[in-house]
Write a protein that binds this DNA or RNA. Sequence first.
DNA 1: ACCAAATAGATAGTATTCTAATGAATTTGG
DNA 2: CCAAATTCATTAGAATACTATCTATTTGGT
Lengths: 169, 169
Amino acid sequence: MPPPEWNGQGMSEIQLYADPTNSIGYLTRIAFRAFSRALEVRTSPHGVSSGQWRFLRVLWREDGLTQRELSRRVGMREPTTVIALKSLERSGFVKRQKSVQDRRKVHVFLTPEARALEATLLPAVAEVNAVALAGLTPTEIDILRKALTQVGRNLAIDADEITSTDSAA
Amino acid sequence: MPPPEWNGQGMSEIQLYADPTNSIGYLTRIAFRAFSRALEVRTSPHGVSSGQWRFLRVLWREDGLTQRELSRRVGMREPTTVIALKSLERSGFVKRQKSVQDRRKVHVFLTPEARALEATLLPAVAEVNAVALAGLTPTEIDILRKALTQVGRNLAIDADEITSTDSAA
DNA sequence: ACCAAATAGATAGTATTCTAATGAATTTGG
DNA sequence: CCAAATTCATTAGAATACTATCTATTTGGT
């Protein structure tokens, strides 16, 4: 049960986090899930899942990437990319083509069907962002973007430290 | 398609969003996954997964909740809660007990083992928040918290509209 | 030219989460 | 007081991601 004067400027972080609902981690998770649902609602009528959409968005900007590069840009691990690409291939949205220079590599290309979707899907999904950010000032949005970026970076560094300290210390 | 002068602030939103890496949705997803990993690293040595931890955190504050109420507070759908509770029960962290007043209801209680973990786990996880927010000013953190809350709320409303418009329009 | 190390991708197995549908108990309204 | 609606929990089935491990290929040092 949240205490009476809860969220004033002077409150310590500890006390804030005592209410799980105020923790940045919780809020981030809720926002992420809400984004996914909003995406899904708009893309699934076109036969595109939210997961597939994340890959298409990158490929629309640059076609023919290798799977590794694609993983990096989408922000997923490689096994996840493999699964996503299989699904995209089944759906007829991409073709995979082995490199002749380096036969380990596989380049990923969009099909005409996937290209045709860009004009339909990008605006529909731009709407998700517009809806999400309603009621926030441009300054707040800038800070949100900057802060989320920082949080991601901070925690990535943390992960590196933890895993390397594992064997070091 | 988003109009040309979109958002005041110099760079148009279109251009920002043209780079997927700048979209709030993308940044939220990356931050969320980073949080989960950081959590997992700190809780798994104690036999607690990040998913389980989210439920324990709520139960430490209030024990004996029904599954529905627990779902609401944790921010998960009910089937997810059922699965999580099964896993928590297998791990010996909770007991479930049918209500005698209303035999539809199941109350969830922590075991002594789970209670004992609170003192260990809460500080470990507080560290995740501290690490995540490093380099941000208190004002930025306030705005981040406020903005994430707003985004979650906006998208929840969106979901309601979409699903109810389904049958209405 | 050869073999060790690095790189690219794929596979296996698991965890988390969702939607949709079902079952069981309770409440409500005629 | 009973039929219909509601509420709470669960099951079934799928998508999304992960870690750990494996295979194939390339590269670099000797």
